[in-house]
Simulated scan of single mutants.
Amino acid sequence: MANPQPSQFTRISNELYNAIMQTDFSKRQRNIIDLVIRMSYGCGKKTAILRPVDFELVGIYKTHIGRELDYLVQAKVLVMQGEQVALNKNYEEWRVSLVKNANQERFKALIKRNLGSYQNSNLKENFGEMEVTETVTKSYQNSNLEVTKTVTGQLPHPSDDKDSGTAERKVKDIKENIYTPPSPPIAIEDILARFPRYNNRQTDTLRNYWQMIGQAHKNRTIPPSIVAKEMDYWERFPAGIVMEAIEIHMRKYQSKQEDYTAGIMRRLVKEKGGSTNGTISQGHQTPTLDRSKFLWKGS
């Protein structure tokens, strides 16, 4: 029977871990990031030493790892130099969309709920006095300082309440106090507005393109999170390549989905003898994505 002990663990700041959880990485990308963290912070180092074959250990094979690593580097999530790979801890530089319902206020409320002493008699029976600890660690990323915040509470026994409904009312009050209304959905128009490099005519073309792509999906619609993720990926290409690929897709391949457009872009880059790092056209610079715009707060 497995019985892991806390004597050996991976030290990563809660702030950075929160950012990873609320970023819309694919399963493969998240596996890559987890391996990098385990082999760097988990080994007491800032960087990991990894070869392409090593990623097979987490289910990413050589047919996919090159493209995924290239994306994560271009998106400023990873930094690579030869076999040395590191996580860019400045998550504000990451050019990957947040998850659809990311909300800092709700996330903070969730942390507060789990840090507090929860009024639950079943926990009292199993654990007695409960001590909850949140550790904010500035380990290998900044320094060796460790700051610990401890909240200790005595869970009441059911017999201590003369009114049998008191405990239930307390739980209800806690839930009502920390509840935050759901975030409003992100509209495609809001996403288009985040990419100012496209002029009005190009934006109209993009709008028509996404309407066409929605019809190619099974439910005749496309989630805005996919729109944001794809347009983030397109930022590695010059705007001219993006629009040329979109027009080809709309003219010849109306039944294909959005991933087919990315393939057209890569083919166009190859034909023109450029690269996918935003430097095909002289002077083009990839704009930095403001991640805070992907974060909606409840009203």
Rank of each mutant, 00 (worst) to 15 (best):
N122L: 06
P287V: 08
T221S: 08
E189I: 14
K270Y: 04
W94P: 15
L57C: 00
S164I: 05
P196G: 04
R113N: 01
A262Q: 06
S97D: 09
N122Y: 11
L123H: 07
K293G: 14
L87C: 06
G66A: 10
T221N: 03
P184W: 04
I213Y: 00
T203S: 09
F195A: 11
E247F: 01
L78R: 04
S7V: 11
D24A: 15
N200M: 07
K108D: 15
I188F: 01
G278H: 06
V96F: 08
V77W: 02
R267C: 05
T203E: 10
L50F: 06
E15M: 12
N208P: 08
E247V: 08
Y233T: 11
P196V: 01
Q81W: 07
E168G: 10
D190L: 05
K112F: 05
T279K: 14
I241S: 00
V79W: 01
K62E: 07
W94G: 10
R67G: 15
R197I: 04
P238M: 00
P156T: 04
M39I: 04
V96Q: 05
E93Q: 15
Y198C: 13
E271I: 13
L155C: 03
L78N: 01
F107E: 12
N199R: 12
K27H: 02
L78Q: 03
